[in-house]
Design a protein around this nucleic acid. Structure first.
Length: 650
DNA sequence: TTAGGGTTAG
């Protein structure tokens, strides 16, 4: 409810009091008009007074008034008061029960809501579409898609006809865990219902179609989602239709498609104005791709189209995240500094940024500022602070924070904090101390802890501990390409080719494929993507020629190819050739060819940067007139004048 | 009178 409406309701209320004094009694109808207004405005004080009036006058015994009072208390968060009134009602109907079921569900007491639902069934109260929809929505909001689907089935069996609300709730539940994709008969049913809605010209089918698109996109069936999207005539698409499709692509890792669609949205003949949801989805896509240029354009769009005060905070937080992940943490800081209002997300996003870019000291300063500003410091804050220490090699500072987080802040370390400590010590090469921390853990070390240890074993070539960590991961059922690849790399590093072959065989046997390494550069005309040994780019010949030149030049400066990273069981000369073809080197050469002197080259890699590429790019940065900003799956590396910002902590 | 769709930090 708008605040104006609430004021109006309050005025009505005082007029009603005056009326009471003049002995003209407001009737049930007036109470049923006023109570929902107080419910919507969460105005429990006024609501209570009206309740008092209803008791004094006996109007509370009216079924509709009773229901409105219960609903008012429930909506104001006073669910126990709601329940007391409900219990005292002599005559109840299905609405009285429905109000309690939804009230409890929305107060986070879903178990109790289900208790009421069961009681309704036991007492043979005829359930209506609102009861069923409320329970389906309750499951859906908690991410229990299968349960929502199950209740939906029971509803259909009982003969109760679903409506738009039911379908929208069901689909939002199915979007959480892909349940609908496994229930084809329900799919058919939903489609039939939508067709019915369209045929009967309800005008509400758009909402169901939007939910359907969202559900498919969230179930990673983005092709299917797009099919439906394309099927909807452009005039019938509203801002949500666009947003769910853009957000769906962003979450499916199809950020390019998301951004194409965003451009299409704002360039239509009669454009649909993106709202904050759309903006945040588009910025999320930019952040994933590190698409700084497009992110800046969206920033410009936001600036020109001034969003409301309450939306500003949300959009600014998304902008900070976009700038941080696109490699421009200083731009993120400017956004932060210009915010009239910040919240914990704003601070944490920027803190993460300083961590990712290896600017640990600034992260620590920001953390101090966060305390001064009175922001809540919780477990998440410490994950970020420890991460920042870890990526800047601030081992002692990290150990200090780990000690004080409980003593000073009352935050008990969870598995994720131990994982940060293992990472912190591991990156710094203190593997024994990392193992000591693991042995001291009061809980079972989860996969995150072993992954952190395994990663460090890879960097610091510790075969024994690496084998131990990967065995632990396999015991925990983490049979993914990352575990096997890291282990295989550790063996290859130690020249244990038989073991490499064994791991590769295991991968083949279990059908696990290594994700191919892939790097991309944002050029003026779009994104150029490269895989290992890629020769598909139109500039391929120039790229390889330039790389050949660069290799020749840096070898003269002292660069020796680190063949440990080639990981093929061939002789060293051949390995050198494989190394030249790594995706990050190809991306860099393309960047040099297409970027004006003095302008930074921004590269993104889906996996961690290869050690040899890291050394090579450090050398190359001595002889080119560009800063190279490389984001890998772990952090940012800023290469300039023969130096990398990561200082070896990667 | 009661139920409903799309966003941010680790």
């Amino acid at each position: 409810m708008q605040s104006g409406e609430l004021e109006q309701a309050v005025r009505m209320f005082y007029r009603m009091n005056a009326v009471e004094e003049s002995r003209i009694r407001p009737d049930a109808v007036s109470l049923c008009n006023i109570l929902p207004a107080f419910a919507a405005g969460r105005a429990s004080k006024q609501g209570k007074e009206v309740h008092g009036y209803a008791v004094r006058t006996g109007l509370v015994d009216d079924l509709f008034v009773g229901n409105a009072v219960v609903d008012m208390y429930a909506k104001c968060g006073l669910i126990d008061d709601a329940r007391k009134v409900f219990e005292r009602m002599e005559v109840k109907d299905v609405v009285s029960w429905n109000v309690m079921v939804t009230g409890l569900s929305q107060m986070g007491r879903f178990e109790d809501a289900l208790g009421f639902f069961e009681k309704m069934r036991r007492e043979d109260i005829e359930l209506d579409v609102v009861t069923w929809s409320a329970v389906i929505a309750g499951y859906a909001q908690r991410g229990y898609g299968y349960e929502a689907l199950d209740v939906f089935r029971q509803m259909v069996v009982s003969g109760c006809e679903p409506n738009v609300v039911t379908l929208v709730s069901l689909l939002s539940g199915c979007a959480c865990d892909g349940a609908l994709l496994h229930g084809k008969e329900i799919h058919g049913y939903v489609i039939k219902q939508i067709l019915n809605l369209i045929k009967n010209d309800h005008g509400e089918e758009q909402m169901v179609i939007n939910s359907l698109i969202d559900m498919y996109a969230k179930c990673k069936a983005d092709n299917l989602a797009r099919k439906i999207f394309d099927h909807v005539a452009p005039v019938n698409r509203n801002v949500v239709t666009w947003t769910v499709m853009i957000g769906g692509y962003a979450q499916c890792g199809e950020a390019n498609h998301a951004l194409e669609l965003f451009s299409q949205m704002v360039k239509q003949n009669k454009p649909t104005k993106p709202n904050v949801f759309t903006i945040s989805c588009a910025l999320m896509a930019c952040a994933r791709l590190a698409a700084l240029r497009l992110g800046k354009q969206i920033h410009g769009y936001v600036f020109r189209h001034r969003y409301g005060k309450s939306d500003e905070l949300f959009v600014d937080n998304c902008l900070i995240d976009m700038y941080v992940k696109s490699g421009d943490v200083d731009a993120a800081r400017v956004v932060f500094n210009n915010m009239s209002l910040t919240n914990v997300v704003s601070w944490t996003s920027l803190l993460t940024g300083y961590g990712m870019h290896g600017r640990g000291l600034e992260a620590i300063e920001l953390f101090k500022g966060m305390r001064k500003a009175g922001m809540p410091i919780d477990g998440v804050t410490f994950v970020v602070v420890l991460y920042a220490c870890s990526h800047s090699g601030l081992v002692d500072k990290g150990l200090e924070y780990f000690e004080t987080m409980t003593q000073e802040f009352g935050v008990v370390p969870g598995v994720e904090h131990y994982a940060c400590m293992v990472d912190l010590l591991g990156r710094a090469g203190r593997l024994e101390k990392a193992m000591e921390i693991i042995n001291q853990m009061p809980m079972e070390p989860g996969p995150v802890v072993w992954v952190a240890l395994l990663g460090s074993c890879r960097v610091h070539t510790n075969v024994e501990l690496g084998e131990y960590a990967s065995n632990k991961l396999l015991e925990l059922g983490c049979e993914n390409d990352g575990t096997y690849t890291l282990l295989s790399n550790i063996y290859a590093n130690a020249k244990r080719w038989k073991d490499v072959a064994r791991v590769r065989f295991l991968m083949k046997d279990t059908g696990i494929k290594k994700r191919p390494g892939c790097s991309w550069v944002q050029g003026k005309t779009g994104t150029a993507t490269f895989y290992v040994g890629d020769k598909t780019h139109p500039l391929s010949e120039e790229i390889y020629n330039l790389l050949g030149d660069l290799m020749y030049q840096i070898k003269a400066l002292g660069y020796v190819p680190d063949t440990n990273f080639a990981l093929h069981d061939v002789d060293d000369e051949e390995k050198g050739d494989f190394l030249v073809e790594h995706s990050e080197k190809l991306a860099l050469a393309y960047g040099i060819l297409t970027t004006a002197p003095g302008v930074p080259i921004r590269i993104t890699k889906n996996l961690r940067v290869c050690g040899d590429c890291h050394i090579a790019i450090t050398y190359i940065s001595k002889i080119i007139d560009h800063e190279v900003i490389l984001r890998d799956s772990s952090r940012f590396h800023h290469f300039k004048n023969g130096y990398c910002s990561c200082k070896g902590f990667w």
